[in-house]
């Protein structure tokens, strides 16, 4: 890995996040790139809990806790408030989990995106409602165990394609990222920072507690997710122009699945079904990227 210059960290140590928490890694990188001139809005979820409980905080920048599912609208309001105060240069970051984004936050998110509010919305995706004890969300991948999709009836719906929903809003910038590729993540946040309007970044954050794997494997899984393309990395400019950011040769998804307890007990048939889905989505993306290249060259 090439050097990432050491910038000021805007997060204090001492959070109550689980050992090996992927979202902490993501939060730290996002804030570091956005810099001091940032205010954060978060909804209920692990992201708000690990931020510290009153009177403590892990954030060196203002951090606003809003009600569940309202990150986008609250952030938009905060941004408007700052604008009214003449503090136009402040980056407002909406920071929400997959539950708070894919499910209950969807309408406020869609509204803010449709209005092209000038905020950066980052969904840290641990693929379930982790904070309340691992319940499924529409970000939970097919075949995964959660407490509400127990072994007897595992999640059988594909993961919602959030990026496609956001692309339909034709917002200026959408990107997916993984904590295991901090350089790529940093680059995408930096790029988002330089754009005006609604920016949506979707980061996969492995969760040892909910995915049932040893804490030391977080980075490896975040990498396997990308390499296998089960969580493909790409950018969408103006809702149309797709650019892939593959991080290496495509690997079989099996390796990713078998190292997590939540996928334990999947049959070979299940695995190949998942592989098919992965392949299908990846070739769709490849096509979209190819088409974007053609129409822009």
């Amino acid at each position: 890995m090439a050097k990432v210059r050491v910038k000021e960290e805007l997060v204090y140590p001492g959070s109550f996040a689980c050992p090996g928490c992927g979202l902490m890694m993501a939060f730290r990188h996002v804030l570091r790139v956005l810099g001091r001139n940032t205010a954060v809005v978060t909804t209920a979820g692990c992201g708000s809990v690990v931020a510290g409980s009153y009177p403590q905080t892990i954030s060196k920048v203002p951090f606003f806790h809003c009600s569940f599912g309202t990150a986008a609208s609250t952030a938009a309001g905060l941004k408007a408030g700052y604008d009214m105060m003449g503090k136009r240069s402040i980056n407002v970051l909406a920071w929400a989990g997959d539950g708070g984004t894919f499910d209950i936050g969807l309408q406020s998110l869609s509204g803010a995106a449709e209005r092209n509010e000038d905020i950066i919305y980052v969904c840290y995706d641990n693929e379930a409602y982790m904070n309340t004890g691992v319940q499924r969300s529409s970000g939970t991948p097919m075949g995964a165990w959660t407490t509400t999709t127990p072994r007897e009836s595992l999640e059988d719906r594909p993961k919602k394609k959030m990026a496609a929903i956001m692309a339909a809003h034709e917002i200026p910038y959408i990107a997916t990222a993984s904590v295991s590729y901090p350089e790529d993540l940093d680059r995408k946040i930096r790029k988002a920072k330089g754009i005006k309007g609604f920016r949506f970044i979707h980061i996969i954050v492995p969760c040892p507690t909910g995915w049932l794997y040893p804490a030391s494997e977080t980075v490896r899984l975040g990498r396997e997710a990308v390499l296998s393309r089960i969580f493909p990395l790409f950018e969408i400019m103006a809702g149309k122009k797709y650019r892939l950011s593959p991080m290496g040769a495509k690997t079989p998804v099996r390796e990713y699945l078998v190292s997590q307890g939540r996928f334990k007990g999947l049959s070979e048939k299940d695995i190949s079904l998942i592989q098919e889905k992965v392949d299908e989505y990846w070739s769709e993306l490849e096509e979209l990227a190819a088409r974007s290249r053609e129409s822009h060259s």
Binding site: Y12, P13, G14, S15, F16, P55, Q56, T57, I58, M85
Partner: peptide, 20 residues
């Protein structure tokens, strides 16, 4: 310049004293 924020609790203490 005047504050327009409604009164609310604000945490200002770093979490670093928590010896995790």
């Amino acid at each position: 310049k005047e504050s327009i924020a409604p009164p609310m609790a604000a945490a200002k203490m770093p979490a670093s004293p928590n010896k995790t």
